[in-house]
Design a protein around this nucleic acid. Structure first.
Length: 596
RNA sequence: CGGGGAGUGGCGCAGUCUGGUAGCGCACCCGGCUGGGGGCCGGGCGGUCGCAGGUUCGAAUCCUGUCUCCCCGACCA
C-alpha cells in the first residue's frame, strides 16, 4: 500500500546547504535518506526499498555460485582481533563492557568467520566453502563524506571463501568475479573491474569494481581494455626530447632555483629533462604499518608481529623520477615493501645536501637511490647537492648507481599498448581479494588432507556495498530534474500520478488504475495527494521511477493513460484506460522490459 | 591531524560588525479560489538563536571555553 498521501517520503525543494555531491543532495531531496551524525545515516522507506533491490540482486547472484547466507555479529570480543593484529587499526571502534572486557565493533568479518571455520571445518571433505552475510560494518572513518558514499556505518555483503589450496582459491575467486560482473550488469551501472593494490605485504591478487562518477574518491586509469586503479596503474610515458650527450656532468649556476619548473625554465629544457629528487624516510618493521586496504574485507595489514613489537628502523632513500612526473605513494609503498614518509628538510640537509638542490651524484652508496623506470637512457639535469648548483649531463648508471622501480603516477596521455590513457574519478562499489593464509594462520583455520596431513585453509574475501551501488546509480544517471533510476534499483516500478481533486471522475479512474496495478503485483507509487499537478510531476521526476503514468481529465476523453519515461523525460505511447482484467499490468510489464 | 567554513522554527536564509520587542521565503495547520508543470488570497501554529560560563541594566549580537556539522587536504573502503 503505497499511497503518497500516507507514505513517508519527505521530498524537499532545497538540498541541505552543506551537501556537495549529486547523490548526497538528491537522495536527501528525494526523501530517501536522512542524516543523524557525521557519516551516520538513516534510510527512509523509499530509500530502503532501493537498498533492498541491490541486496536482492546480490543475494541471487551469491546463491547462484553456491554461497551460503548466514549472519555474524557486529559486537565482538577483541581477542581474535588481537590475534590477527587488526586491533591496531585506528578505524576499528573499540569499547568495554560493564565487566571491563574489551570489545570491538566489526569493520569486516574475517575474524568471526575464520574463527568459526577453524572450529567447524576439520577435513578436506568440508571444503570448498563460501559463506556470506549482509551485515552492518562500523568504521571510525577520519573523514566521512558525500552522504551515503562514505559513512562510518553501512551495510556490506561480505563473503568468504575457504579452499584447500591456492588453486581452489583461484576457482572461488573466479566464481566471484563472474557473480560480481553479473551484479554490476544487472544493477544497471556503468562499471569497470580494475586491478587493485594488494598492499604492502603483497597479496595474491585483488580487483575493485569501480563505478565512474563525478563524486568518486578513486581514480581509474583507462586505455582500451586496460583498466586499473591509478594507485597501481602502469603505462608508457610520453617521451621527452633528450639532452645532448655529455661525457661528464657539468655544474650550472641555479641561484635560488629550487623547483623543477624554475630550473627547467632557466636552463631552457623541458621539465622531463630533469630528474626530480624525492627523499623519503622508510620505516621498516613499523608495527603500525599497514596497507591502504585496512577497511576492505580483503584487508591485508602488516603481519601481526606477535610478541615484542619490532623497533621501526628508519632509513633515508632518494627516489628519482622524471621532472614532469609525480610519485605515486601506493606504488612507492609497494616498491619499498614498507611504509615511508617524505623526509624533513633537516634530514635531507644532514644526509644528502641542501633541500632544493638534491641529486644522486656523489652519494657513494650512503643513501640508496631508486630510479623510476620511466626514466629512459640519456642525460639529465639533477641537483648538485650544493647550494645554488645543478648538474647537467648526468647519466644514470654511469654517474650514479640505482635500483630501478616503478613508482610513478600515470597521467593522461600516457599509453598502454599504444592507446592513450584517460583518468576518471570513480566510486569503489565492490572489491575482491585473495587473502591466502593471512587470517587462517593466526586464527588456526586448518584441515586434514587425504593423508591425514594438517594444512592451512586458503581464503578469499569479497565485499560489496549496496549503498554505494544506489549512490553510484544516482550519480551516474541524475539530470537537472532529479534522480533517474535504472529499473533494477528503482524503489517503485511505476509512479502513478492522479490529477484532479478527490471525488472527481478522473480521480476515480486513477483509483481504479491503482487497484489494477496492485492486484497484478506491479510495484506502484500512487500520488493521490491533494496537490497541484506541477508539484506532483516535479516530485515524480525527483524521485526518479523509470515509468510515470498520468491519469487526468485528458485520460477520460482520450481513453488513454499517459506514459512518460523518466530517462530522457520522453513520452511513450499511451495505455488503454479501460482494458480487460490484467491487460494494463501486462502492458506495463511489456514496457518495463524495454527500459534500461 | 592541517587548512577553511557553518550552527537562528522541518528546509533554505537574514539579523551579529555597531548589544535594546527574533525576522523572511518555502513547508506545515485552518478557510476559500484554482486544477496538466512547484498556482493565488486570507488567517494561524512553530524558535532555550548548538551548549556552558562570563561581561552588561540588558546578549542571537561582546569575551572565554566547549560540542557538533560541512568542505579541501592528509589518511582511508
Amino acid at each position: 500500500m503505497t499511497r503518497l498521501s500516507e507514505y513517508l517520503l519527505p521530498t524537499e525543494k532545497q538540498a541541505p546547504a552543506d551537501a556537495e555531491a549529486i547523490s548526497h543532495k538528491l537522495m536527501v531531496r528525494a526523501g530517501l535518506i536522512r542524516q543523524m551524525g557525521a557519516g551516520i545515516w538513516t534510510w527512509l522507506p523509499a530509500g530502503w526499498r532501493v537498498h533492498e533491490r541491490a541486496v536482492s540482486i546480490i543475494r541471487q547472484e551469491m546463491e547462484a555460485i553456491g554461497a551460503q547466507e548466514m549472519l555474524m555479529p557486529v559486537l565482538q570480543p577483541a581477542e581474535p582481533w588481537r590475534r590477527t593484529g587488526r586491533i591496531a587499526i585506528e578505524e576499528l571502534f573499540k569499547l568495554r563492557d560493564r565487566k571491563d572486557a574489551e570489545l570491538v565493533l566489526a569493520m569486516t568479518h574475517e575474524e568471526a568467520v575464520t574463527s568459526h571455520v577453524a572450529q567447524i571445518v576439520r577435513s578436506y571433505r568440508d571444503l570448498p566453502l563460501i559463506l556470506y552475510h549482509f551485515q552492518v560494518k562500523e568504521r571510525d572513518e577520519p573523514r566521512p563524506r558525500a552522504g551515503v558514499l562514505r559513512t562510518r556505518e553501512f551495510v556490506m555483503k561480505d563473503s568468504y571463501s575457504f579452499d584447500r589450496d591456492e588453486q581452489g582459491l583461484a576457482e572461488r575467486y573466479e566464481l566471484h568475479v563472474r557473480a560480481y560482473d553479473r551484479i554490476m550488469d544487472r544493477s544497471g551501472l556503468r562499471w569497470y573491474r580494475v586491478e587493485a593494490d594488494v598492499g604492502v605485504m603483497g597479496g595474491l591478487g585483488a580487483h575493485e569494481y569501480m563505478a565512474p562518477c563525478p563524486a568518486g574518491e578513486n581514480e581509474v586509469a583507462l586505455a582500451g581494455s586496460y583498466a586499473a586503479n591509478v594507485e597501481v596503474a602502469s603505462a608508457q610515458p610520453q617521451p621527452v626530447p633528450s639532452l645532448e650527450h655529455a661525457e661528464a656532468p657539468q655544474s650550472v649556476q641555479t641561484p635560488g632555483l629550487t623547483s623543477v619548473a624554475e630550473v627547467a625554465g632557466a636552463l631552457g629544457v623541458p621539465e622531463g629533462a630533469l630528474l626530480k629528487a624525492y627523499p623519503v624516510v622508510v620505516q621498516e618493521g613499523d608495527p603500525a604499518a599497514r596497507t591502504q586496504d585496512a577497511d576492505r574485507p580483503g584487508a591485508q595489514e602488516d603481519r601481526p608481529d606477535r610478541g615484542e613489537p619490532a623497533q621501526p628502523r628508519e632509513r633515508l632513500v632518494l627516489v628519482l623520477l622524471r621532472g614532469d612526473h609525480r610519485v605515486n605513494e601506493v606504488k612507492l609503498a609497494a616498491a619499498l615493501r614498507a611504509r615511508s614518509r617524505p623526509a624533513q628538510p633537516e634530514e635531507i640537509a644532514a644526509q644528502i645536501g641542501p633541500p632544493g638542490f638534491v641529486g644522486p651524484v656523489g652519494l657513494d652508496g650512503r643513501v640508496e637511490v631508486l630510479l623510476d623506470q620511466a626514466v629512459s637512457e640519456g642525460c639529465y639535469v639533477t641537483g648538485a647537492n650544493e647550494r645554488d648548483l645543478h648538474l647537467r649531463g648526468v647519466r644514470p648508471g654511469r654517474d650514479f648507481q640505482f635500483r630501478s622501480v616503478d613508482v610513478r603516477a600515470v597521467c593522461e596521455g600516457d599509453t598502454v599498448a599504444g592507446v592513450p590513457v584517460t583518468i576518471e574519478p570513480a566510486i569503489e562499489v565492490a572489491n575482491i581479494f585473495k587473502l591466502g593464509l593471512r587470517y587462517s594462520q593466526p586464527l588456526g583455520a586448518s584441515y586434514l588432507d587425504e593423508r591425514g596431513q594438517e594444512r592451512p585453509i586458503w581464503m578469499g574475501s569479497y565485499g560489496i556495498g549496496p549503498a554505494r551501488i544506489a549512490a553510484a546509480a544516482v550519480e551516474q544517471y541524475a539530470d537537472e530534474h532529479g534522480i533517474s533510476w535504472p529499473r533494477a534499483l528503482s524503489p517503485f516500478a511505476v509512479h502513478l500520478v492522479a490529477l484532479g481533486k478527490d471525488g472527481t471522475p478522473e480521480r476515480q479512474a486513477a483509483e481504479e488504475v491503482y487497484e489494477q496495478l496492485l492486484a497484478a503485483g506491479v510495484q506502484a507509487l500512487y500520488d493521490d495527494r491533494d496537490a497541484s499537478p506541477g508539484e506532483k510531476f516535479a516530485d515524480a521526476e525527483l524521485i526518479g521511477c523509470p515509468l510515470r503514468l498520468t491519469v487526468g481529465k485528458r485520460s477520460l476523453t482520450s481513453g488513454e493513460i499517459e506514459v512518460q519515461l523518466r530517462r530522457g523525460r520522453s513520452d511513450a505511447a499511451g495505455l488503454p484506460l479501460a482494458g480487460g482484467p490484467g491487460e494494463l499490468a501486462q502492458a506495463v510489464d511489456a514496457l518495463w522490459r524495454t527500459l534500461p
